[in-house]
Design a protein around this nucleic acid. Structure first.
Lengths: 151, 151
DNA sequence: GCATAAAGTTAAGCCCGCTTAACTAAAAAG
DNA sequence: CTTTTTAGTTAAGCGGGCTTAACTTTATGC
């Protein structure tokens, strides 16, 4: 399905450089906090999707419930998330970020944003307006894609 | 340093959704290939920066030379990269992707691009033009940032 | 109500990534 | 030419992530 050659070229070039940059950045940040990437990804997941049960973790990361349980356990022990009984289903657990967990992620985002700020510094005022509008368009589209489930 | 509130808001919103998406995507892809994230990151590094020595690996990933050596060893054994003597310095090694390694990364990128294609499908023709131009501006700026070393 | 299914946990065992420490070999410094 | 520095390897040991297998506890189906 060929939408637009120009668009695909542009987004691929951007994705190449941006994905590499952010993967490396998050990796180093996670390491600096003493968290492993899987542990860190669980925090990101909770940040992005909000509180959830163990089963959502094991499904989204494609690991066994046992693995999810152990992973979460370490994060609970370190005070980054809380694990409480679900009042509606006493078998299930509800996981959520603690303030400590949220604060850690915030620091990570700040580091990422510093790069965005450097990027902004290389643009003219007109370019910044143009890019802002385009980013808003893409963010909206991405959110729609996220909401409507893939076939 | 406040460049532009609008710009920063726009890029943060975009980064939030895009980083989460691509981290998760790469993670699942790496898992599907049987590679660990560190192994995969080394391949990405070679793809992005081209051939290099062991020392570059250990520096960029902030691990000891020993760790880099062992990591590379597994990738060599699995045929994703080659490790040859540097003709200019017989102590040093030159690492580079094999065709097999390149082909594996290509498959990963194709999966990522599928998402970009879905995104394109949600935009009007005018929006695609607008977004393409903005992405080109950002890609250029990001490449400049990459080239000029951070202080 | 009783069998069955579902949500998590625990424990054993495996491989992996990482570190330190001890090493080899080649280049640079003096 | 000897000493020192640089590039990388090897081995031992630790902790992490993951799986399977055997559980416990709570909800559901009939």
């Amino acid at each position: 399905m060929m939408r637009s050659v120009q668009f695909m070229q542009a987004i691929r070039a951007w994705m190449d450089i941006f994905m590499h940059r952010s993967m490396r950045g998050w990796g180093l940040f996670a390491k600096s906090t003493g968290l492993s990437m899987p542990q860190f990804s669980v925090l990101m997941q909770l940040h992005h999707k909000g509180a959830c049960g163990m089963s959502e973790i094991s499904e989204r990361f494609e690991v066994t419930p046992a693995a999810a349980s152990q992973l979460v356990d370490k994060l609970v022990q370190n005070g980054f998330i809380v694990r409480e009984e679900d009042p509606n289903d006493r078998r299930a657990k509800l996981l959520d970020l603690t303030d400590k967990g949220r604060e850690l992620l915030e620091r990570g985002f700040q580091e990422r944003y510093r790069w965005a700020d450097q990027l902004a510094g290389r643009l003219t005022a007109e370019e910044r307006v143009q890019v802002s509008e385009a980013l808003n368009i893409m963010t909206r589209a991405a959110e729609e894609l996220e909401a409507e489930p893939a076939p």
